[in-house]
Design a binder for these strands. Structure first.
Lengths: 335, 335
DNA sequence: ACAAAGCCTGCAATCGTTTACAAGGAAAAT
DNA sequence: ATTTTCCTTGTAAACGATTGCAGGCTTTGT
């Protein structure tokens, strides 16, 4: 046990072989003779050798890192996707470099920077608001998009957003609602649009007219859900049910409505989207559309690793299923 | 614009200087003459050169990475600390390697592995359940502990947990409660014990007896808060107020109590700990103890960077202040 | 005008691995 | 017995940057 960490040289000396043999023993054990292999492994154990990832990466022209670009780490939605990513990347010896697109100044430029910098073997994109033009970079690393995005033909892991919206509306219709409103996500976002489209066409398909004044603009945050509640409370002619594009908004909405003395679902039915953990613990428990966040992360990571290893920049796209979870926040309209 | 990324050699050639000069221009611009400096910078811009972090790290005998060990990324509490860490580490050109101690098998062993592997220039410890003995590793990198931990004398960023508990109890006492219960965190955790101690001594200092049957065991999760609610609902002789060791538990508790038809704070006052984002959006809004999570991350990162740069393994410890946020979930007892 | 001091810059070694290539020896084929 | 083939192993050249050392050219001092 030396002061410093042992290097491959030390192992080679102890085992009485060349560094090449040590390296081979560790990476492709099959090509070295059994006797030497064992000698090397003993020496490794004895010296406590661990391969220096930096040197290895330099030589192998890789970085051992994938960059994850997301709008906001603090958001539990992304945190859970991260957990999924980590569960695949960590065992594969890849580190995650997390880049928060909201904290810095110009997100598009940051993306371009990461693409060009060669700081990563791959990139996971969780922010749908970035502009697709940046991808024009030559020699960019493989990218997997794990959210709705305008950049058309990248390998991606997506969620049945439109169908989710349709499920939500269908549920409310079945309960007897005909006056259904919607609170959207932030304007630029594709999630917003896809869910809004799903909402629109679900209403359309049963012949219900679309009341534009019942479509409120939010931004996925609880804050904006609460704001929507204020608008709703003040409105003269209000919908009896609302589909909100995120659970956080739904929670904010319900809280505000209840603090104003009205009741859910008696006075208004509420359906969210995401099935965040707290959804079932709210009072009333929140009806919502479940999307398996960890799975999204896992699949995205698997896709990316595959692309990195095969050296391709194209890959399949995957669609993750969603599911309606009916709970207490939705009920029949009280005429 | 070549296919491949430009290397320092390319820049040197274009600028008509040696690679040494290019390197110096970029790292210590002051020592190179103004004219050459400008020539180099022009060449850099022209070639689109970006320094290869791997090569630089290898030569400088560092990794450019800090490892963050935490129990669970998906937990929004940690996610927010992460955001704080990232906001300091990313600009300083350090990557974060996130290691989830819950996902793997033996967390202690993983910690030991990370310490020995030399994979990181520093380590942030967010998991208080790891055993302190592992630190005995010689030549370990600097560590900052950003949570309560038994390992005594490491540099740390801590929160006034005991005082927080005292604030919570004091608040309930002032409202007139004398029958106050507590829901703890998981048994092994130091957070649990510190807050429990704070709770105990706050009661003790005003001469209230301690009812052991009013101390329920939780684990910080909403689930366990809901379970505590069941116990509370079933109890014959129940407290009129509860201090729960986390907001998530408080949310789970409130939800369950309300779904059972009782009301907060009329039937039971609830105080949480953390001030998670949803706290103010619940109905009623949750009274809680605020701890600034982002700040914890920021300070921990700053401390760690300082230790890394000065090469020391000791450093100051910091205590982050907490604050009572009174909201609707606590009120006078209804006799 | 000459020596001393100061600025810049280049040379070349180094960080720790990986991996083409070649070479040595043993086994198999002729 | 000689040639061919196969299996293992070693040699040495990268990978791309940083930096101690030394040398050349100015500047300053006397």
């Amino acid at each position: 046990m030396d002061r410093k960490t042992a290097t491959i040289q030390d192992v080679a000396r102890v085992a009485g072989v060349s560094t090449a043999t040590v390296s081979r023993t560790l990476s492709k054990p099959l090509v070295v003779a059994k006797a030497t292999r064992e000698a090397v492994l003993t020496a490794v154990a004895e010296t406590g050798y661990r391969v220096n990832a930096t040197a290895s990466n330099l030589r192998r022209q890789r970085t051992g890192t994938v960059i994850v670009l997301l709008p906001n780490i603090a958001n539990s939605f992304f945190a859970q996707i991260l957990a999924g990513l980590a569960s695949v990347l960590t065992p594969a010896e890849y580190g995650m470099l997390i880049a928060d697109t909201q904290s810095g100044p110009d997100a598009d430029q940051r993306l371009a920077h990461y693409l060009a910098s060669g700081q990563a073997d791959g990139l996971v994109l969780l922010d749908g608001t970035l502009s697709p033009e940046v991808l024009a970079t030559p020699a960019r690393p493989p990218i997997v998009v794990a959210c709705e995005w305008m950049g058309a033909d990248l390998p991606s892991v997506r969620v049945e957003n439109a169908r989710g919206a349709a499920l939500a509306v269908g549920h409310l219709l079945r309960l007897g609602h005909t006056r259904i409103g919607h609170v959207t996500g932030p304007p630029a976002n594709v999630l917003t649009e896809t869910r809004l489209d799903g909402f629109r066409s679900a209403l359309h398909s049963v012949g219900l007219p679309l009341r534009e004044d019942w479509i409120l603009e939010g931004d996925f945050s609880m804050e904006s859900g609460a704001a929507a509640a204020h608008l709703w409370l003040r409105a003269k002619d209000r919908p009896t049910a609302l589909f909100l594009s995120s659970d956080e908004m739904a929670a904010g909405f319900m809280g505000e409505v209840q603090r104003a003395g009205l009741r859910v679902p008696e006075d208004v039915s509420v359906v969210g989207f995401d099935n965040i953990e707290i959804a079932r613990h709210l009072a009333p428990a929140l009806t919502t559309i479940r999307q398996p966040r960890t799975v999204i992360g896992v699949r995205a990571a698997e896709l990316l690793l595959d692309m990195i290893e095969t050296g391709t920049r194209d890959g399949p796209s995957e669609l993750i299923k969603v599911e309606l979870i009916p709970r207490g926040s939705s009920g029949p309209p009280s005429v």
